[in-house]
Amino acid sequence: MSKTEPSAPAGRPGRSPRRRMAPDDRRQALITVALDLFNTRPYGDVSVDEIAEVADVSRPLLYHYYGGKYGIFLAALEHAADQLITVVIEASRDAPQDWLLAGLRAYLDYVERNPIGFGALVRHGAGPGEGEDQAILDGVRDKLLRLIVDALVVPEPPAELRTAIRGWIAQVEVSCRDWLPAARPPKADLYLLDLFGGVLLTAARHDEDVRLALRSSATGLAGSGVTVI
């Protein structure tokens, strides 16, 4: 049986005692609340007391787990980032002959199911400026870049190819941010897939190293929907 925390004092008259929860459940509750609050209001407008109250934990317990507001903010971003990368990896592995479209759809599905988590992740500038929040978002982009380069089977991708792929990743991110207030547009996945092909073709047309790298990557390109002459 998993250990549970003792109930904290009521704190003020009329308040019900806090529910007993396993430590992992408490941490998850804090992360869920933090994602919601930090996505809907500026970082400076959210207090430690508010996070603790909404998550139904004590202020000392929040500090014990995360060291304060910025700690829970970073933990929430890391949670969203890990979830996003995991679903993309799993989808791509399950569809090796169509890896790019499968991974792209998984990315878009995650955003649609978790607008708060994605919104908090990409609103990296909401933090107090220590830099760790930006590093988490940059880490997501770097992992996506590596996944695509590995799938393309390009052992030593030229800098221009990496730059082109980074630009496409940024376009996907920006598109999702624009779509978040409303419903996902029809055929958004196919539009972004075509855009990927256009980005690679443009890079190959203007750079011989990119063209040669992609020509040597017939196997990987076959699953991306792109043909490079």
Rank of each mutant, 00 (worst) to 15 (best):
W168I: 03
R93A: 15
L161E: 13
P60I: 09
I72D: 05
E132Y: 09
L190V: 09
G129Y: 10
V199H: 05
E208N: 09
D207L: 07
L77K: 14
K187V: 02
L200C: 07
F38K: 02
A159N: 01
L100F: 15
A218H: 07
L104Q: 11
L214R: 01
L145C: 06
L161A: 08
D25K: 04
A120L: 13
T4M: 13
A102N: 06
A29Y: 02
A29N: 06
G127M: 03
G68V: 04
V140G: 08
V46Q: 01
Y66K: 01
D142A: 15
E5W: 13
L193I: 03
T32N: 04
K187H: 14
L144D: 00
E130L: 13
A204W: 03
R105A: 07
A222Y: 05
R215E: 08
E156P: 00
L62A: 08
R20Y: 03
R146I: 07
T163E: 14
A106M: 07
E112A: 15
L193E: 15
H79C: 07
I85C: 09
L108C: 11
G225L: 03
A29C: 01
A126C: 01
S16P: 12
T4D: 14
S175Y: 15
A55V: 00
S92T: 14
T202P: 00
